[in-house]
Simulated scan of single mutants.
Amino acid sequence: MLRIRLPAPQVQLELIGTGRGNRQPFQVLGPTTEVAFVEELLEQQFGGLTINPAELFSFLGSDPWVQERFSAPELVDGDLNATDTGEQTFQRQTLGDKLVQAGFLEIDELEKLLEDYRPFAGTQRFGEFLKLNLQVPPQLLELLLNPTLFDGGGFNDKRLGDRLVELNVITAEQLQAALAVQKQGGGLLGEVLAKQGLLSERMARFFSKAQINTQGQIEYSGS
């Protein structure tokens, strides 16, 4: 996912790309009048809001109508030249996209949150909005935003259950109950927890495989 900020003295817009590949669907978030103005320019230039990110960024920085109202565009998150999810490391993705990969959100849920965020885009960062409006443990958000805080605690050496308890995804009691079921019936702990409805299989895969590298960044391939 990409985030491009278009600042102005009194307001600012954010253009959010939620797709993949050479052309991505973009949402323009901010005050209604400015959003309508930019959307009209984009539709005239590109025939819609599904645009090549690099071409979009170039247009925002060179179009005279845009320059008249806004300062130079700023790339906040993402890679303008990434054409495939494999080219974009987990760490470089936005918080919303990380939550999708971690199994806490589906793409349509993220898009709904982006739409709800629209009225607040001029005064609040999307990450702050997520903290206030998304039922995700604060410890998990902290891991995704500042993984170095967990490196000193031996995150990489911890087992799946210990990681989940540390991040308040499950309680210690829920872990012990799941371990008892696993001891009786076998199988992977993640599968047991998923069957109990405590997390999704995608979440279990993420917390099993995610590592913090020597640069203090999360490494996760999703495969």
Rank of each mutant, 00 (worst) to 15 (best):
A172T: 06
F207S: 07
P138F: 06
A172I: 14
L160K: 14
G154D: 00
V181R: 13
A121K: 13
E115N: 14
E109H: 12
M203Q: 12
G216M: 01
A8V: 11
L167C: 00
I16D: 01
E128D: 15
K112W: 12
G47C: 06
W65A: 15
T50N: 03
E128K: 13
T85K: 15
G19R: 02
F26P: 01
L175M: 04
Q67L: 10
S208V: 12
L15Y: 03
Q215E: 12
K131D: 07
Q139C: 04
T89P: 09
E34P: 03
F104M: 02
N133K: 11
V181N: 09
T171C: 02
G122V: 10
P147K: 01
L95A: 09
K131A: 10
M1Y: 02
Q211D: 01
L6A: 00
F90C: 01
L75Q: 03
L198K: 05
G186E: 14
R69A: 09
T123G: 09
T148I: 13
L167Y: 00
G186V: 11
E14T: 03
L42I: 06
A54G: 08
Q45Y: 07
T123Q: 11
I170A: 04
F57E: 02
G122S: 15
N156V: 04
T83V: 10
Y220P: 10
R118Y: 15
A72I: 02
Q217K: 07
G48C: 05
Q24I: 15
G185A: 14
L114M: 12
E68V: 00
T148M: 14
E115R: 15
E39I: 07
G17F: 05
G187E: 07
S71R: 06
Q217I: 03
K131N: 02
L75P: 07
L29M: 07
E219W: 04
R163I: 00
I16K: 04
P119M: 06
G161Q: 07
S71E: 07
L199Y: 11
P73Y: 09
E111H: 07
F129M: 02
L179N: 00
G197H: 08
Q93Y: 00
S71P: 05
L144F: 13
G78I: 01
T85S: 03
I16Q: 01
F150T: 02
A8P: 14
V28R: 02
N168V: 10
Q12Y: 15
F70W: 03
L198T: 10
N81M: 04
D77G: 08
G216L: 10
G30N: 08
Q211A: 11
T32D: 05
V38F: 00
L140I: 15
G222S: 06
D116A: 13
F207T: 05
G216K: 02
L198S: 05
